[in-house]
Design a protein around this nucleic acid. Sequence first.
DNA 1: GTCTATAGATCGATAGAC
DNA 2: GTCTATCGATCTATAGAC
Lengths: 194, 194
Amino acid sequence: MARAIAQRNDLLPVLAETFREHGYEGASLSLIATATGLGKGSLYHFFPGGKAAMVEAVLAEIETWFEAHVFAPLRQADDPAAAIAAMFTTVTDYFRSGRRVCLVGALSLSDARDRFGQALRRYFALWVEALTGALTRVGHPPETTTALAEDIVGGIQGAVVLARALDRPETFERILECLRARSLPQRQAAGAAP
Amino acid sequence: MARAIAQRNDLLPVLAETFREHGYEGASLSLIATATGLGKGSLYHFFPGGKAAMVEAVLAEIETWFEAHVFAPLRQADDPAAAIAAMFTTVTDYFRSGRRVCLVGALSLSDARDRFGQALRRYFALWVEALTGALTRVGHPPETTTALAEDIVGGIQGAVVLARALDRPETFERILECLRARSLPQRQAAGAAP
DNA sequence: GTCTATAGATCGATAGAC
DNA sequence: GTCTATCGATCTATAGAC
């Protein structure tokens, strides 16, 4: 059964999921071959650089996806508050409430960090930067927005770790809900507290 | 040169650091042999179960260390506020301001999670539980303490991820400082805000 | 208790037929 | 473009000398 010509880009989601599930060292070429349905020869046809090239392509794809669905909306939204809210629902869905690992975060904790350091740094730097701008435009004091953005982006990563370790997706969702609440502009001291 | 008799427990810190730096798959037996200065035969003498047994021993050692230096103080302190403050300085030191990976967190993101799931869950569950108690005794509303404890424990894990990816230990320290501030009991709405 | 030697499997990567 | 066959290296684990 002659399979339709595989496109390199069509492989990226499968590669991404394989690296997410098994990590860089754990994702062997045989495993990747099984997951993609391709032989090693074909894989090296698409990625002459081998496994490292596959990861780099996946990281580039991830950055493109986040740029389109998260970073750009944060930067360009007419309604920054809505864009921030949308970010939380988007990443909750993307990370499957913590059931799905963040590949960038996982690689950052592994010894592959040194090899792919630039891509990892870029991902988080772009995220923090875009979120910082949106937080400022939503009314947070400018001198606090970078710290708050780091708290939120880091908090999401920590939520993935904790929810996976505890095996409790509800924990992921609750933490993100709390982070979302902190992203709202602080009201100036409301009236009645007991 | 007859080396003094190696004690199994003396190997654990070296094993822990090796797994932290290279991950479960990345830490090969040859690497471990080099790091410990022992041959493979000796390693299998101490750990007949091989690499998996080494990780289990390391995880048990980590839990013991945190029990003694973090969990128990949180549970038993006469001054819970001081115990919480001490926790933040202890873990900042332990994680080397984010330069050092949390092995439990890193394993939780890897596919080794399924194999060591119980130990990973225990570590975080004990931490959240001990911190929840201390937060309650320090004056937080009881119905919010578990959520706050999860925010903090998860926040620390996220700080490791983010600080390592950005290569900025200051970010780790700043996030922990922010988490520490949130652990203080909320004052009831103070007087003058502009 | 430590070592070397080595088994057997699997690794990443390549070659070449089709 | 896809495959099979295979290379040499490395892997986990074991055996046995000392």
